[in-house]
Amino acid sequence: MNNASKIDTNWTKIFNKYPILQTIKDEGKYIITAQQIKEFWEPRLMTKHDHSVNRPQIFIDNSLSILPITRGSYIIGAMDLYHDFALSDREKVFDSTDSMPVSSPAFIESIDFNNITSEATAINSIYVSDILRDFLNEPTLLPTVNGRMGAGSFSFSVNCLSGEDTSLLVDVSNSQIEIDGGYEGTNSLCLIEAKSSLSTDFLVRQLYYPFRLWTNKITKPIRPVFLLYSNGTYYLFEYAFEEIGNYNSLKRVQYKKYRIENDVITLQDILEIPKRIPVVKEPQIQFPQADSLERIINLCEIMNSDNKAFNKYGIAKLLQKSEMRKDIVIELSYKGFG
């Protein structure tokens, strides 16, 4: 049983043991402790729902989501916790064809810009190449905060998914957060959340909790930034919360795509490529179809960096094809994909 199936199974057991659905129906929320979750499996894994499709099936079926509120407890409810990267169905945010080329310092040898395998290295890359300075329009930026820390105490409202104009009040008291990168400039503090997989949406908490913590700590404006990296392209999204106490007041401020290109490609280089590629006959087997070349490349990157096998259900969940959870799947005949 893979992790996704194990998480689904164990959450179903938890819902069967505790009156979660009835309590949410009566009170709008259910508070569950890490100790209760740990009866079945590791809470850190059971509650890591970074994208809407990562939620266990029983959450999806009942339009539920979960948030940490202390170091040892969580709130479950019909909360609107996720935000799409694209502003509309027409916006192709992960089309890398119009990315802005930049160069890195010639003396940098410790970063292989052609083989970025971690979020930390991706963040270092946009810092040393001045991508971050250009994106934020901050001539001076220095790394100041990162890693795990307490979120402090604050309250906020979050929209409910009940079909009505309702919201839920959430109180947070020192829940643990993790900041992938924090860079302070003359005029602002930028807090970065980074991912190496291209996804359609993200958990707003990853930006909101750090934003609330540091808004209470310093006087400079806080600039939440989401960084996605794949196939040599850095996708940067800057957001702002229009109402500090409103989780769903997130608005995109700007969005840019960059590519680090230190090598100059000549016409002769391009003409030589076909000469070096052997032509082989296509195999007579079923072949996966995709509407995004960027996602195909991103999947290969993830499989290479994670060094683990994926079956077709794992791939579907990873790439957020939620409709494939209903067993409408692409049959892959290659070994390791069945």
Rank of each mutant, 00 (worst) to 15 (best):
D201H: 05
L250C: 07
P278L: 01
S199V: 08
V279M: 10
I60L: 12
K17G: 04
S230T: 07
E109I: 05
S157W: 02
K17S: 15
F15L: 09
Y183D: 03
T117M: 11
Y74S: 12
N216Y: 04
M149A: 15
I32C: 10
P224K: 07
T33R: 12
I111V: 14
A78P: 04
I328P: 00
V329G: 00
R325A: 05
T266C: 09
Y30L: 03
K195N: 10
D306V: 03
E331F: 01
T219P: 00
Y18H: 13
N248Y: 06
S249D: 03
F337K: 10
I222G: 05
N216C: 05
N304H: 14
E242L: 14
D61K: 15
I277K: 11
I285G: 03
G182Y: 14
P283T: 04
I123D: 00
N246D: 12
A34W: 01
P283A: 14
M324C: 09
L189F: 08
I31M: 03
C160V: 05
P101Q: 04
D327P: 00
R252E: 09
Q22S: 12
Q254A: 15
I296T: 13
K312P: 00
T33L: 14
R276G: 02
L64W: 04
I58P: 00
I192V: 13
Q35F: 14
E27T: 11
D8F: 00
D134Q: 14
T266P: 03
I330C: 07
L267E: 10
I111H: 10
Y18I: 08
L142S: 15
F154K: 05
A86C: 11
I315G: 01
W214M: 11
Y258R: 07
G185S: 08
F59R: 02
E301V: 08
Q57Y: 00
Y18E: 09
K29T: 06
N159H: 11
T186R: 09
W11D: 04
V279T: 06
S5N: 11
L198T: 08
E272I: 09
S65W: 06
P143L: 13
P221C: 09
F135D: 03
I66Q: 10
D165W: 03
S5F: 02
K256T: 05
F202H: 08
I58E: 00
H83S: 06
Q286W: 02
P43T: 13
C300W: 04
Y82V: 02
S167D: 06
S230R: 09
E42R: 12
G232W: 07
L64K: 08
Y127M: 14
R44H: 12
F113G: 14
I66T: 13
E193I: 05
Q268R: 13
S322W: 01
R71Q: 15
A34K: 12
Q254D: 11
V280M: 09
S129M: 10
I60F: 03
P288F: 01
I297K: 14
R276E: 07
Q36E: 15
D306H: 11
P221E: 04
I192Y: 07
R133V: 00
K220W: 02
R295S: 11
S155P: 00
G182W: 13
T70Q: 13
G336A: 08
W214L: 06
S63D: 08
I60H: 03
R252I: 00
V172N: 01
L81H: 01
S65N: 11
